Computed example of a mutant assay.
Amino acid sequence: MRKIRFALSAMCIVATGVASSMSATPAFADVTVGVTLSTTGPSSSLGIPQRNSMAMWPKEIAGQPLHVVLLDDASDPTQANQNARKLVTSDNADIIVGSSSAPPSLAVANVANELHVAQISLSPISMPAGTDHWTFRIAQPVSLMAQSVAEHMKKQGYKRIGFIGFSDSYGEDWLKNLQQSLAGSSTQIVATERYARADTSVTAQVLRIVSANPDAVLIAGAGTAAALPQITLKERGYRGQIYQTHGAASYDTIRVAGKAMEGAILPAGPALVPEQLPASALTKAPGMRYVEWYEGRYGKNSRTQFGPSAYDALLVLQRIVPVALKQAAPGTPAFRAALRDALESEKEIVACHGVFNFTANDHFGVDKRARVLLQVVDGQWKLVEY
């Protein structure tokens, strides 16, 4: 297990092949946040900017030292499960943040539910009703994003839609929500294909989609793996409109796909284009603050859909920790429960990717303020709809 531990009170990071730390054992008053991210493996293009963004986290929250233990789950659900279990049972985490993509995030959710510790997922995982009591999501729900794509398809008069998505919970969630968003309209899905995150070829799937002669195609992938179907569709002469999902919203995807990405349309969080938002958008100020910091540190166009989620997790923590501290001391089951309850009680938490209002029945907590529709024009993101 590759482990990264850092105590923000010391502002230092160490990455080793064994458990290690440059900080002393946290005092009882420390608020401990356990984090598992996919900084290696197929979803590393999501996990790395999230890890990078955590350098924005402060040394303390509400006057209490903030102690963070960060583990790499290598994009593997089994490892994510083990990480989450260790973070709670060995590191005494008060709350868990992670993981980066759907499969490992679902594995963490199982542990959160079992051990009664709140989870802030950075992936828009879909869970059966009643099973997400301890799981809250920072990433926008697929249902919200799929509605945006479906509405645009119908406005453009597209009748025949092709679909190719990951052969896991992310791809299935997108297919289900696109079908629901198109239900009752004359726009129908006429071809459905799947591929694995680590696949190096999708030629056979793309040929079947092209043969169905769709007006538009939706690619339900994430990270740079979303570029493969985009490139292959163009190589096979497809000239219809190609849509992507918010999982593909990074300049890395544009870089990998090259000219094949031109004209692609996708929904994304507003933090990807804060400069293009109207002044009235509540997400504009935190989005600008994040982008200016991140690109000042990592270079122009290094922003992604994924990194801001880690910063948004901090903004949520800064609202709920002071509330929980009034109820119990960190390091106790009562404090874990108080954090969970505060997630549901705090309202209008303004962040980069949305304004959060979690409720007992909605553990996504965002509305249309959490999405924009973008198009790739000359290798840049252009705002189409807000």
Rank of each mutant, 00 (worst) to 15 (best):
R319C: 12
Y238F: 15
L317S: 09
P270H: 07
A271Y: 01
E292H: 13
P278C: 06
Q241N: 05
L315R: 14
S302R: 01
H246M: 15
K234N: 14
I231G: 00
L314C: 09
K259Y: 14
A264Y: 00
N301L: 13
A268L: 11
Y311G: 06
P274Y: 08
M288T: 11
L228K: 11
G237V: 02
R289S: 15
T245Y: 12
E262P: 04
R319V: 09
A248C: 04
G299K: 06
V291T: 12
A281F: 00
P308V: 03
N301G: 00
A249N: 12
Y243I: 10
G258K: 00
R239G: 07
Q276D: 13
A279I: 06
T232M: 10
S250T: 08
G263Y: 07
V316T: 15
R239H: 15
E292T: 14
L317R: 02
R236G: 06
Y243A: 07
P267C: 10
A257C: 04
A281H: 05
M288D: 12
G296H: 09
L317T: 11
S309E: 15
G287D: 13
L228Q: 04
E295M: 09
V291H: 00
A249L: 09
Y238Q: 13
I320N: 11
G237W: 01
Q230R: 08
Q241A: 12
A313I: 09
D312Y: 03
S250Q: 08
P278I: 08
R255F: 05
I254M: 14
P278Y: 02
K284D: 03
L314M: 14
I265F: 00
L314I: 10
P274M: 05
M288V: 12
S280D: 10
R239A: 14
K300E: 01
A249V: 08
L233I: 02
P274L: 10
G307A: 15
R236N: 15
P308F: 03
R289L: 14
R303G: 05
G296L: 12
A271V: 00
K300H: 04
P274W: 11
D252I: 02
P322C: 14
D252A: 15
Q276I: 03
M261R: 02
R289Q: 15
Y238L: 10
T245F: 11
R303E: 02
K284C: 01
P267L: 04
A271C: 02
K300V: 05
K284T: 08
M261L: 09
G240A: 06
K284G: 04
A271W: 04
P270R: 03
Y294H: 07
P270E: 10
S280W: 02
I320Y: 02
A260P: 01
E262M: 03
L228R: 13
